[in-house]
Design a protein around this nucleic acid. Structure first.
Lengths: 139, 139
DNA sequence: ATAAATGCAAATGCTTTGCATTGCC
DNA sequence: GGCAATGCAAAGCATTTGCATTTAT
């Protein structure tokens, strides 16, 4: 799967560096990481990898269409995906979780679709995640 | 309508000042303004109104449940509304437009709704607004 | 060879905070 | 009168930029 993404990046004229591969692997491993989380993890294996490179790379990946960026209340979160899909966002801890797209149907008026020609559709449910609700119960 | 909102703010223990009324009126008048846009407009009629007060007030209004804040790519946009509703967001100019909720239906699996108990649902269509498409055609 | 990617330091820009003053209820 | 709101200056923090160096293709 990562190989396919690397190929796509190269096909579009992007270059692969150790830094970029490391960031790509982290994007596959972590769950909707922030730029800082990516930096922290890379720092372990790759101390010279800079924050600037994390940002440059994420921006580049985004333009190449291999990742999504979600602008959450707290900060941006990233995801290895070509299209946005529905998410649950916790109002307390700020975590982001994928939702099964099969369990949510969005029906749009045809005239609206033609008129606006949306490039993509973003949907968030906001609430309190299980972990946060569990901790709330204890107190 | 503004009177009703003022009443709600007071009922919840908030106080009304000239600054707050001015900001409230601007929220009613402007279309999804940013904090800066609000500040610019208030500055005309009310030069002493500070940026801090704009931010304080928006934060307070949000906690009191009279406005919504949308975290867009460019910056936050605000809206006089108790609940979020569907929007169209322009990928070029960053403008935000209300969508007729009647033209978009979101159907959620019952089990999902019970499990997550979402507080609210946010939906964005991303694309290019009419103005931006028109300008694009000219070039 | 050349155009892209890296990484440092510095800058930017939005937003928040501390705190003394003001003013609503 | 008491507590919330104001507004100034300063700080905070995520993200971006300039630029010289390195490196993939």
């Amino acid at each position: 799967m990562i190989d396919r993404i690397i190929q796509k990046i190269k096909d579009k004229g992007g270059r692969m560096t150790i830094q970029r591969v490391t960031i790509l692997e982290l994007l596959a491993k972590l769950d909707h990481p922030t730029a800082e989380e990516i930096f922290q993890y890379t720092h372990d294996r790759f101390p010279s990898l800079s924050f600037t490179t994390v940002y440059n790379t994420l921006k580049s990946f985004k333009q190449l269409g291999v990742i999504q960026e979600y602008y959450m209340e707290e900060r941006s979160r990233f995801e290895l995906s070509e299209k946005p899909h529905p998410h649950f966002h916790c109002l307390q801890c700020g975590c982001l979780n994928d939702l099964d797209p099969g369990k949510i149907t969005i029906i749009m008026d045809e005239t609206l679709e033609e008129e606006l020609a949306p490039v993509d559709v973003e949907l968030f449910l906001h609430g309190f995640c299980q972990d946060c609700r569990r901790n709330e119960d204890k107190s």
